[in-house]
Design a protein around this nucleic acid. Structure first.
Ligand SMILES: NC(=O)c1ccc[n+]([C@@H]2O[C@H](COP(=O)([O-])OP(=O)(O)OC[C@H]3O[C@@H](n4cnc5c(N)ncnc54)[C@H](O)[C@@H]3O)[C@@H](O)[C@H]2O)c1
Ligand SMILES: NC(=O)c1ccc[n+]([C@@H]2O[C@H](COP(=O)([O-])OP(=O)(O)OC[C@H]3O[C@@H](n4cnc5c(N)ncnc54)[C@H](O)[C@@H]3O)[C@@H](O)[C@H]2O)c1
Lengths: 212, 212
DNA sequence: TTTTTATTGAAAATTATTTCACAAAATAGC
DNA sequence: GCTATTTTGTGAAATAATTTTCAATAAAAA
């Protein structure tokens, strides 16, 4: 499955490139240079060239990169040529905002099922997504072959819910809770910790004056 | 302002440590070892010790770290001993979820003002936070001395809104839009790009089987 | 056609971060 | 008080990521 492993730092930048290439395509641009890309995505141009070079020689010297073919390449690499279904667990404040958001607009991901303990939410539909009771979590994940979960439950129940989701076959978790989840090593957790982000921002403001 | 610069990677972990120390304190634990912390926050214990050591010798050999004094230390470092006001711009889907969320519960940050173009939102109060029309952005930021902005407007207007906020004295931006903002070098942007996070998660699942 | 200019790709150098491994110090048990 | 045990703090090594540099090549201009 793994061709040749690219650096994690590079992998995290791929979606950024991908998005900007889509914008270029929509604007009918046919070519782009690493410097131009650099301006738009705020990544050093040498880093961009280095990133791209892990996948082979994608550009042409003296010319730059062809938008169309680069886009096609990244679409495949990022699995954006097929639809990925995800489940959302915890239809509260944040969960609702995510349900309403159309991820499918600029990525080939959609939330195809949601879950919550609240009895009044069970078996309703929010923004076109059916909400199931927690009792059905495992079954639905299995039936729908869902491998990715967005976790927006209270931190206090996050580990339990996670264990259940993994039992249902989940392989990746986008974790919005403040808990650092314990998972088997073949399950990947991506933490999005908004309180942390704010605190980090404050720390940087106080301790790193301008430079970087 | 900058004592001695600690690695950025370390800085990003400080809020994680801080949160867990609060949990320990609430549970009346008086001591903690780097291994125990490691289990909870999923950071290698050697990394934790190294991180702490940038601030001097905070622990005691054969004993570990004193929860209370470590907590007090990090509270100061992270500026959590004083209240930080932030503004939120764009009271839509996501903006509303953030407004409702009580950041103040586990961090000394609160959203003290919100802004939106929608005339029906102007001069109302949501979750205790006054919403102002955009025309007042600059004045309110200046009057309230707000240095931090949470940006949840559509990407298409993100740069314009940013420019205006910076003119109002803002120094840090938590950017939820998909646009990579252009800012003067003394302004810091922390990007939270949820579509990216999902795509990165998918990439890792497809290309990095278990290991790391 | 020749020259100039633009731009990549890759090697090398640099910088940043993590991990190993262990002496030093403190505690805990007896 | 002595010994075994625990656990820190940190040099040194390993690993990861970024940046510099420049030869090679393509395109554009002369
Ligand atoms: N809202 C924010 O802006 C924000 C910001 C930072 C962090 N977070 C984190 O995101 C998570 C969700 O936040 P929120 O504000 O949406 O909270 P919320 O309380 O509004 O929503 C949580 C939802 O989870 C459901 N739930 C509770 N227990 C459950 C269970 N066992 N199984 C399934 N569903 C269950 C609740 O019924 C509720 O609908 C929390 O962990 C919070 O710390 C939220
Ligand atoms: N909602 C999500 O889950 C989600 C997920 C990923 C990214 N995002 C990003 O977050 C941002 C907000 O998303 P959303 O779903 O809340 O959108 P939204 O459309 O629900 O909210 C945007 C708000 O901004 C206001 N607005 C528009 N122009 C403005 C201006 N010039 N000045 C001030 N306010 C203005 C609108 O009135 C609206 O209330 C977008 O950039 C979106 O791409 C959202």
């Amino acid at each position: 499955m793994t061709e040749q492993k690219i650096p994690k730092a590079t992998a995290k930048r791929l979606p950024i490139y991908y998005r900007y290439l889509n914008i270029l395509k929509d604007a009918d641009k046919t070519r782009v240079s690493s410097t131009e890309l650099s301006d738009a995505v705020k990544v050093d141009s040498a880093t961009i060239r280095r990133d791209f070079s892990y996948f082979g020689a994608l550009g042409k010297r003296g010319y730059g990169y062809d938008v169309e073919s680069l886009l096609k390449f990244f679409k495949k690499i990022l699995n954006q040529d097929k639809l990925t279904n995800a489940a959302l667990i915890g239809v509260g404040n944040l969960g609702n905002a995510l349900l309403n958001f159309n991820f499918h607009q600029n990525s080939n991901v959609r939330i195809s099922a949601a879950f919550d303990v609240r009895p009044d939410l069970a078996n309703t539909v929010q923004s076109g997504v059916p909400i199931y009771p927690m009792a059905e979590l495992r079954k639905q994940l299995e039936d729908q072959q869902i491998k990715i979960v967005i976790l927006t439950v209270p931190s206090s129940v996050a580990q339990d819910v996670t264990d259940e989701a993994i039992a249902g076959g989940v392989r990746g978790i986008l974790n919005f809770t403040s808990l650092r989840l314990s998972v088997p090593k073949d399950v990947r957790v991506q933490n999005v910790d908004l309180t942390n982000e704010l605190q980090t921002l404050i720390y940087f403001l106080d301790h790193y004056n301008d430079e970087d």
